[in-house]
Simulated assay, not measured.
Amino acid sequence: MANVWIIAQAGNDQAPTRITSEPVTGGEESTVVVPDPNGGPPATGADRPAASWMQFMPLVLIFVVMYLFLMRGPRKQQQKHKQMVQSLNKNDRVRTIGGIFGTVVEVRGDEVVLKIDESNNTKIRVSTSAIGKNLSQEGKD
């Protein structure tokens, strides 16, 4: 601490003759002394009580709520979608996230073949992440 600036108010018996804005010089570190308003001995920074764990309770609660809303919710939705995709079978009616309705013809790893038009026998391949809802399972639930 090369430059320490001290601004303090002293009692009448300790009043300085003049106040300067020069830095305090000296090799040793200084301790801030705060006078007690009740007239007791002055308290230094080391005499202050340690921070209680109750002061950190609101911060801990904020982190818990953030975890519940930001981490746990989306993770549950991902697990639910994964279970729905794994339970896809042939002839299930599905709706993609793009709004295309079709019937599952085949499930291959991470892609699904959908028949979207019965008259022309039109088929498309989509990713499993593009399946939004299994309409066949909706009636069973």
Results as ranks from 00 to 15, higher is better:
S30N: 08
V24T: 09
Q55N: 14
T25G: 12
V65K: 07
R75I: 05
P16Q: 08
R93C: 05
Q86A: 10
K115S: 07
K140E: 15
E22M: 09
S87K: 05
R93W: 12
A8P: 01
Q79P: 00
A8S: 11
G102W: 01
G139L: 12
L68R: 08
A43P: 10
G45P: 03
P37T: 03
H81F: 11
L59Q: 14
V60K: 08
R125T: 07
V4I: 11
W5R: 13
A46R: 10
S129C: 05
K90P: 04
R18C: 11
T122Y: 10
R48L: 13
E106M: 12
V4M: 13
R18Q: 15
S119H: 04
G11Y: 04
P74Q: 02
D117K: 06
R75Q: 13
P49F: 09
K140Y: 09
K123D: 03
M71P: 01
M71G: 10
A2E: 08
I124F: 00
G102K: 00
V24F: 10
A50V: 15
P23T: 09
K82I: 04
S30T: 02
T122E: 15
R108C: 13
Q79Y: 12
V34C: 03
V107E: 02
V112K: 00
W5I: 05
T103S: 15
R48K: 09
E106N: 08
Q79N: 04
A43Y: 06
M57Y: 12
R95W: 03
G27C: 03
L135V: 14
G99V: 13
L68V: 09
N89S: 06
V105R: 10
G11P: 11
M66S: 04
S52T: 14
I131W: 00
F63I: 15
S129Q: 11
T128I: 12
D141R: 13
F63Q: 08
K82H: 06
E106I: 07
V24H: 02
R48P: 03
D36Y: 03
N38F: 03
T17N: 12
A15V: 10
R18L: 10
T103H: 11
V105C: 11
I100T: 06
S30D: 05
E111S: 10
P41S: 11
Q79V: 02
W5Y: 12
R72N: 11
Q137L: 13
T96P: 02
L68P: 01
A130P: 00
M84C: 10
D92S: 09
K76N: 10
E29P: 01
T31I: 08
T128M: 06
Q137E: 15
G139Q: 15
K123Q: 11
V24S: 01
R75E: 09
Y67W: 14
V126Q: 00
N38V: 02
V32I: 06
E118M: 05
Q83V: 04
Q137H: 09
V85D: 01
E28I: 08
L59D: 14
